[in-house]
């Protein structure tokens, strides 16, 4: 057998849980360092080196943590939806792992988006909460995340639970375009998109720069936490299979 046949191929390395633990290990520390560095630069811009808004004053600084957490609330769900397709169509072993590791992160970022949004809303709109399209659909997104986490916990065998969770995740994905376009469909309190627009961002560079750096920092944070969570989940499944094997041998 030739040497090239001995080495696992690209797809095997990507999809095999054991191979995943090997190739992802050297990525964790450099990713942590880069994430921390981008956060430091982002926070310096957000809190020190950026102007106040001519209307909102300093409360614009809440935007630098609100918009990235709101972006992640939808992005994490998109990652879970793609993973759900991987589970249902290809029965990809790492797709279940990815879905399970992402759900608590998505729920946390959605809760943070609601929290920072309400703290930004009080001084700018005069209210912490309003049942408008964007806020209500984001609250529904949080409830979907919590439902998915609860469903994972309802199954003792994660392999059996994965298909049910994948179906619920794909059904819940209908809420993502509702969250995104709610500000266009219903003219309510929340402002329309000002960064991800077909005609480009509507804000000046001095405000866009810290926002984009914080976008990067939060996205990197998600990547690191997702990677570490996936590594833990692979190990947890290995523990379950070892325990079964040891119990069989003992019996």
């Amino acid at each position: 057998m030739s040497h090239s046949q001995d080495r696992p191929g690209f797809w095997t390395r990507l999809s095999n849980p054991g191979q995943f633990l090997i190739w992802s290990r050297p990525l964790v520390v450099p990713l942590v360092v880069v994430t921390a560095a981008v956060f430091l630069v982002g926070l310096w811009f957000a809190l020190v080196n950026s102007p106040e808004d001519y209307q909102m004053g300093d409360t614009v600084r809440i935007m630098y943590i609100h918009v990235p957490t709101a972006w992640l609330s939808q992005f994490v769900y998109a990652v879970m939806a793609v993973s759900a397709i991987g589970t249902l169509v290809w029965r990809h072993p790492m797709a279940d792992v990815s879905m399970k590791a992402a759900a608590p992160l998505g729920a946390t970022f959605t809760a943070l988006a609601l929290y920072t949004g309400s703290l930004w809303g009080r001084p700018t709109w005069g209210t912490f909460w309003e049942w408008d399209g964007r806020m209500t659909s984001t609250l529904v997104l949080l409830l979907i995340y919590l439902g998915i986490i609860a469903l994972w916990r309802a199954f003792e065998d994660p392999l059996r639970g994965a298909r049910m969770v994948a179906i619920l995740t794909l059904v819940g994905a209908i809420n993502i375009p509702i969250v995104k376009f709610s500000v266009d469909w219903w003219a309510t309190l929340h402002q329309p998109a000002s960064v991800l627009r077909a005609d480009g961002p509507t804000m000046p560079g001095s405000i866009l720069t810290p926002l984009l750096i914080m976008f990067g920092a939060f996205t990197l944070l998600f990547i690191v936490l997702h990677l570490v969570g996936m590594r833990t989940e692979v190990r947890r499944r290995r523990i379950a299979s070892l325990e079964r094997r040891l119990a069989q041998r003992g019996a």
Partner: peptide, 13 residues
């Protein structure tokens, strides 16, 4: 004047 909201948001996150 709205420092308390900004600080609460950053500390909470």
């Amino acid at each position: 004047p709205h420092a308390v909201f900004i600080i609460a948001a950053y500390l909470g996150v």
